[in-house]
């Protein structure tokens, strides 16, 4: 499948000498949700800003829908909607005026019906005549999304879209993102919230110090790097692991009252049955049993630490 965005060997060195992007190459597939994770200052916003034309790349090439973002900027920018990280709005404008302005700026004929539909879908219709300064932070965030969607883009960049918003709005936004993806819109989002990426992303990229250190399907990533643990709450404290069970990857915790077995889910035999048999033979009883899988957050932290 032809990528909707193709980034090839892109570097960005600011006038101060700081290298924000270091040989970034990445392909974004049409109608996928791509989450870009990274610590503060990793280069997430610089990468988005470069694709959108806000920042000039020092070298490399970026194409959108097969067109170069510099020579074919009219076509590429028409396709892109951007929700920036900061709530940058003209405080004195009304919601209706600012969203209509965005549509015109991106070269679209005025369409009050579409603007109305967009505002309604974001629960902003009753605020259409309110000035931006009168809105709450969450409402302003919705307006930023409405502005980005006002020209019917086929690619949407969301830079930290749920930073500082309440749980309800966050879930509304996730729902909206999924709906847009179902409508064929490609979504690229940066986030600090790993659970956000875990919840909605199809693919995940991790960026650190301007370098893309990992790009992987979310499911494969979880599968490939995710460790699973079997946790047994023992009836009696265990002082040491019996010699018959030293082949198992076991740990004693909680003053001997918990036995933890780490195993690989990708292997044909996890060893759980054998372990349970050994426990029975050794007359080690347990009250409860549960499993735990390492989260994307664990994976992310481990990746970022590894690359340091």
């Amino acid at each position: 499948m032809q990528p909707i965005i193709q980034i090839t060997d892109v570097n960005k060195i600011y006038d101060s000498g700081f290298q924000a992007l270091n040989d970034i190459s990445l392909s974004i597939k049409p109608a996928e949700i791509f989450a870009l994770l990274g610590p503060n200052g990793a280069g997430k916003t610089t990468l988005i800003s470069t694709i959108c034309g806000i920042v000039n790349a020092s070298s490399g090439q970026i194409t959108v829908d097969g067109k170069d973002i510099v020579s074919g900027y009219r076509h590429t920018r028409e396709l892109i909607g951007l929700v920036p990280q900061e709530l940058t709005t003209d405080a004195f404008e009304t919601v209706w005026a600012t969203v209509s302005f965005s549509r015109g700026l991106f070269g679209k004929k005025p369409n009050p019906t579409f603007i109305e539909k967009t505002l309604k879908s974001l629960s902003l219709w009753d605020k259409k005549d309110s000035r931006m300064m009168e809105l709450s932070g969450g409402m302003k965030r919705r307006v930023m999304i409405a502005k980005a969607l006002s020209h019917e883009p086929s690619i949407l960049f969301l830079d930290e879209p749920t930073a500082g918003v309440d749980v309800e709005l966050r879930k509304d936004m996730w729902q909206l993102v999924r709906q847009l993806r179902n409508d064929g819109v490609t979504i690229i989002l940066t986030t600090h919230y790993i659970e956000e990426a875990e919840e909605i992303a199809d693919r995940i990229g991790v960026i650190k110090n301007g370098q893309l250190i990992l790009v992987e399907d979310k499911a494969a990533l979880m599968n490939q790097l995710g460790k699973k643990q079997l946790i047994l709450d023992l009836k009696e404290p265990l002082v040491a692991i019996p010699s018959t069970m030293t082949d198992f990857n076991l740990q004693i915790k909680n003053e001997g009252l918990q036995l933890i077995y780490s195993y690989d889910t990708t292997k044909e035999h996890t060893g759980i049955s054998a372990l349970l048999q050994q426990l029975s033979s050794a007359n080690i009883g347990f009250k409860d049993i549960k499993t735990d899988q390492s989260s994307l957050e664990d994976i992310f932290v481990s990746l970022v630490k590894e690359s340091t």
Partner: peptide
């Protein structure tokens, strides 16, 4: 100057103009 001050210039810079 006002869009530069408020940060809304991002929209102008990313628009097909």
């Amino acid at each position: 100057y006002f869009p530069k001050f408020t940060g809304t210039i991002y929209e102008l810079l990313s628009a097909p103009v």
